[in-house]
Amino acid sequence: MILDLHAHSIKSDDGRAKVQNYCQWITTRNVPIDGFVLTEHRQFDFESDYSELAQKFNLTILKGAEVETEYGHVLVFGVTKPLTEEFDFSNITLKLADVVAAANKHGAVAVPCHPGRVRVGMSAHIEEHGVPEGVHIVETFNGGSRGNEDDIAQTMADKLSYQGIGGSDAHIVSHIGRCATRFSAVINSELELVAALKSGEFEALTFKEDAA
């Protein structure tokens, strides 16, 4: 099963895509993914219910978040109400250690994203802050990466024995599925996603050359 683990909808301040249009795009263009995770910036979207869309298009649509720490941006999968009460998702100066600890406490997983990117990626901050505790997975393929950012991410992941995931970081409809993650498990819920990530049975994929 292949999921794009990093996408934004109009719920994010810089997102321009409606979720329905993501679904229609994936179906019409035969994008080789089985679903996606909406990781809105600095928030968790409790309001939206995409179950009807998921059923209509036979896709898995899950929700996560993208928060901001001193190590850059971090995806959080398995967000629950109690987790959102542990720290302020809108705070752009979170401590990665606090995010990881809260995620662990509430059965979630924290994954630094686009780690090869200057300022908002983890790799650039390791020299200053050291190797963070508790990180096991990073995003090694990001659909918005420029230049050698994915190479930097992969090199860091190899060096620190992190596993890699892929996500498109789509903000517009046609960018969904540019990168994704293949799981050996079938995933239909955030709980199953967390379990699959913890199992280590996954690999990062990129379809960027296909999309270009």
């Binding site: 321009r16 895509a17 409606k18 249009n21 229609q24 795009w25 517009i172 409809v173 046609s174 960018h175």
Partner: peptide, 17 residues
Amino acid sequence: VVTDIDEDTGLVEIDLT
């Protein structure tokens, strides 16, 4: 690319990159 078509209003949404 065309990413939405509203048959009622005649509006078309386009992604541009």
